[in-house]
Design a protein around this nucleic acid. Sequence first.
DNA 1: GAATACCGGAGGACATGCCTCCGGTTCGGT
DNA 2: ACCGAACCGGAGGCATGTCCTCCGGTATTC
Lengths: 233, 233
Amino acid sequence: MTVISTGPVGTGSGTCHDPDRRPLRRDAERNRQKVMAAAQALFAERGLEVSLDDIARRAGVGVGTVYRRFPSREALIEELFEDSLRELIADAQAAARAPDGWTGFAGFLSRACERFAADRGLREVSLSTAHGSDRCALGRQGLKPAVEVLVARAAAQGRLRDDVVALDVPVLLGMVLHVAGFARDEDPQLWRRYLQLLLDGLRAQRRRPTPLPREALDEDAVERVMSCGRSCG
Amino acid sequence: MTVISTGPVGTGSGTCHDPDRRPLRRDAERNRQKVMAAAQALFAERGLEVSLDDIARRAGVGVGTVYRRFPSREALIEELFEDSLRELIADAQAAARAPDGWTGFAGFLSRACERFAADRGLREVSLSTAHGSDRCALGRQGLKPAVEVLVARAAAQGRLRDDVVALDVPVLLGMVLHVAGFARDEDPQLWRRYLQLLLDGLRAQRRRPTPLPREALDEDAVERVMSCGRSCG
DNA sequence: GAATACCGGAGGACATGCCTCCGGTTCGGT
DNA sequence: ACCGAACCGGAGGCATGTCCTCCGGTATTC
């Protein structure tokens, strides 16, 4: 994970096809949008592995149309996640400028989890190198320096325990999002409870625990969650 | 998750085929053992979804032999995990009798993670209802009362924060094991670091953080872990 | 050494995903 | 209104992977 760029990445248009090629025919462009919307939705809820056939079906379009427009799944992914990734980086940078170091740090974790919890695809693009390529890789790397600042400031302030490092952050996010992933049908916000627990553990010192947001799942909910096989990895 | 049984489950023989049926021929029994050993190993490292063909290959035996001996994957799973599940329950019960409530609670979490980290199959059997059946279900249910005692004692002692409940435990385990799962190639013990963080968050009060075991992954390790696609769910 | 319990693995049935191809349709300029 | 180019849909070929059965041949037991 070498730092290559810290600034914004790519163009951010998100709508046009290719600046210097002649525009698509109207129906083609329409279908292209439908495909992107469908992919966006499916990636968000089922992850990046969904089949292109599924995307086509959801878009109400033939498979051919998908393949014609996007040479590969990667192309589709890059097209879709560039903006989200940039927003995430912006979050981190904003948090790094927050007046209070700890608030910035904790706030970013929370914000990042919100984004990730709502979009499994984004989670996979950000937390794994296995998907997306060039532009996504740049995005991932742009995140790093901002997170380092967050950790450094919170630690310097004496509020974050000093044995935590920036590279713990992706792991911590992974833990919280694991909860977000498997409990999303029962309580899509449940992860907040466990994030708070972690944050209390990350504090340099504290007397009393911060009250936990959300209730724990009840027996039936746990039972239901356990029965759909998402609870382990 | 209704409590049905708290005592030991099943017979625990683990070796014989079926008490009242005439014993298998020598070669048959030998092969049966080979299959169980192979399944044990593969379940542990790749989870319960491995194909029976793979198990047969690993056992150095034909597929037919596997199917002949075990009517279904479930049968194989039950046969294999009954003992492990019982051991886990014994851990919990022992911890519930520990002189110190907090030590018992924290010790059980740690012990359970050790077992789970070493055996992905056990993790899936214990933390999901989707696999195994009768006997495994009983095992899962046997765990519950012991965990309730653990939580109650640690809380009564004033060391565990009082807004944590027994049903948080499977979720907490899931979080820690998520780390164990994706970091196993880089540092099979990494989960201890994050378990400690969580435990510090679970304490009712504390001034200073408990020192963290293990180092965080370094950049290259994170990079490698991220590239094998196990980092999200 | 015969009867029988057992073995191996080829192979059929099925599912899933990728991607191509081409007859038919729609668009857009004239 | 019309025609050629651009585009569409989805059937279908290919590859992969899993489950499970079947039966000619082999090992074991008495």
